[in-house]
């Protein structure tokens, strides 16, 4: 573990009664540094918490916001659970896939956009819901998506995920 990362690990661990509680914030921090949760981050997390690499891998792979390979600068997640699907998420998904030329889980060749269909985002009252990096967009139509896409292209992305 690099000295800087060790310092961060200790700082995070000190916040909780049990070191293991700091694992997810630590992995988020590593992801922010490296773009995704690297193998080294898994090893570092195991060392920090006294877990085996396997146990950290199990935890890292469980959470959909921890990535095991690099993702685009813009992460677009569209809900595919009941309320959103009833309110047009299917058409929206179809539109996005065509527009970006990717399938579910893929990244555009320029490395800008990663598209994912995910389970309930907990915004059923304003379905369909789209999550861009960590920002929610509600009642998204295909036209609305095109407008969003233009603003994203024009802007630098915000920090993907806050570490804390």
């Amino acid at each position: 573990m690099s000295p800087e990362r060790r310092r961060k690990a200790e700082e995070l661990a000190a916040r909780y009664p049990r070191r293991q509680s700091a694992l997810i914030p630590f992995l988020q921090y590593c992801q922010e540094q490296d773009g995704f949760v690297t193998r080294q981050a898994i090893r570092d997390g195991a060392e920090m918490c006294g877990l085996t690499e396997a146990e950290v891998e199990s935890i890292a792979s469980f959470y959909t916001l921890l990535f095991r390979q690099s993702v685009g600068k813009h992460l677009i997640q569209v809900c595919r659970t009941l309320s959103c699907m009833l309110r047009g998420a299917g058409e929206l998904q179809e539109h996005i896939r065509r527009r970006l030329g990717v399938r579910n889980g893929e990244t555009t060749p320029d490395g800008l956009f990663t598209y994912e269909e995910v389970e309930c985002l907990a915004a059923c009252d304003r379905a369909p819901c789209l999550q861009h990096n960590l920002m929610f967009h509600y009642n998204v139509t295909p036209d609305e998506f095109d407008r969003l896409l233009e603003t994203w292209r024009a802007s630098r992305p915000a920090v993907s995920l806050p570490a804390e």
Binding site: A54, S58, S61
Partner: peptide, 20 residues
Amino acid sequence: HERRLIVVERGHRSLIGTAD
């Protein structure tokens, strides 16, 4: 107590596996 066999991913995608 070897803790090397795990469940990776979640829900219907869950798999039995090991680290890496």
